[in-house]
Design a protein around this nucleic acid. Structure first.
Lengths: 207, 207
DNA sequence: GGATCAATCTGGACGGCGTTTAGATATCAT
DNA sequence: ATGATATCTAAACGCCGTCCAGATTGATCC
């Protein structure tokens, strides 16, 4: 039921790196990050434990490929949220909700994404123009009508990012169940937390 | 140079659970979370790999004991920050700075603390009256002069906690080095980020 | 004090892990 | 066709978490 390619596969796989990343994501979704061993990935792809080493330097490099695809999916989700409304402030909070919902719906993937970032001590994909980080910054810039100083813009983006990440990591905590029910659902809860952050207040006030 | 108790130790250790937690924290500080294996802890304590199982159900339970001590240390750091000034708003931002600085100064410990929380899907030590979470809530309540509704108080505390945790996880990112220098140091950077969050704005405005 | 019992620790084992090496097999350029 | 190169396998290494049988110790009761 598990291993995808158990039937008579040609000796050369064809596109093993692709298959390995897919297998990793599948294991991640179905069994969580703890079960994500390189050997399990190889098993899932129907290949020997040493085969992945012809496509990735080590386990870490495979996980980085997985994380990379995760960031691309997140970029896409944020881009969609960004064009969801004309109201600039609603746009911002929609992005925040979309971010946290992505983490909620892909908890294992999100964890891998951030673990890789921590090991590199760097925000991911910062340079990419359509990357999540830049999308947040650009949205804040729009709210400020383009009159926000570079340093305020950067600080506000960092602040937003920290709040979003913090909430993303805790959204599943049982502690919040009562509050979510009281507020009429998870999204209402998210928006309430964001409101209580007075998010971006300083930047917006200047605009 | 490494194993603490290599000399002729009595067959019974005396207080092995204490020694194991200490050994774990030592390894955590000196070699990071990746090196924290149960066997390494036992080695450091000068004991066989199976010995810990007479004091902890498994590795997880040992890590939980380590995390517990971490939360106690954090509680203490926040309590100290809380009495650092009479200005209520300064008190709040001092707590935020203290929180992030604790994470910066004990990165491996902080990681263990939060990993355990995630696995339990719960905020840690929530019940304890002098626990970090309650201290933050109580401080926000003081700022609001005691007139903040229960639900607003809880939401503001969650918001603060998320922001603090997010920043704590990213404070080491190289990405921020330039900004820190530009702002005149790490603490100035932290305060600037907190300001840009407009932290607790909604609650404060009502007070 | 001596016998008994529970607590504690050791040595050895098991399977799983990441990784390396040597050698087998397939593809590709000439 | 031949040889170089890319890809895969089988087997091994050392480390890991965990369990088990047996040795050692401390406490308890006579």
């Amino acid at each position: 039921m598990s291993n995808a390619a158990a039937e008579s596969r040609p000796y050369h796989h064809g596109d093993l790196s692709r298959a390995l990343v897919d297998a990793a994501r599948k294991i991640l979704e179905s069994e969580g990050p703890a079960a994500l061993s390189l050997r399990a990935v190889a098993r899932e792809a129907g290949v020997s434990p040493a085969a992945p080493y012809h496509h990735f330097k080590d386990k870490n490099e495979l996980l980085e490929a997985v994380a990379h695809e995760g960031w691309e999916a997140l970029d896409e989700a944020l881009a969609k949220a960004r064009v969801s409304t004309d109201d600039k402030r609603a746009r911002m909070s929609n992005i925040g909700v979309a971010y946290v919902c992505f983490a909620r719906d892909n908890p294992a993937l999100y964890r891998v994404m951030y673990d890789r970032s921590r090991d590199k001590d760097a925000l991911p994909e910062k340079a990419k123009e359509d990357g999540a980080y830049c999308q947040v910054r650009e949205t804040i810039n729009e709210i400020g009508g383009g009159h926000v100083s570079d340093i305020d813009l950067e600080l506000a983006t960092i602040a937003a990012w920290c709040a979003g990440h913090g909430l993303a990591e805790m959204i599943g905590f049982k502690h919040f169940a009562g509050l979510k029910a009281q507020l009429g659902g998870e999204e209402a809860f998210l928006r309430a937390v964001f409101e209580h952050l007075g998010m971006f207040a300083k930047v917006i006030d200047r605009a």
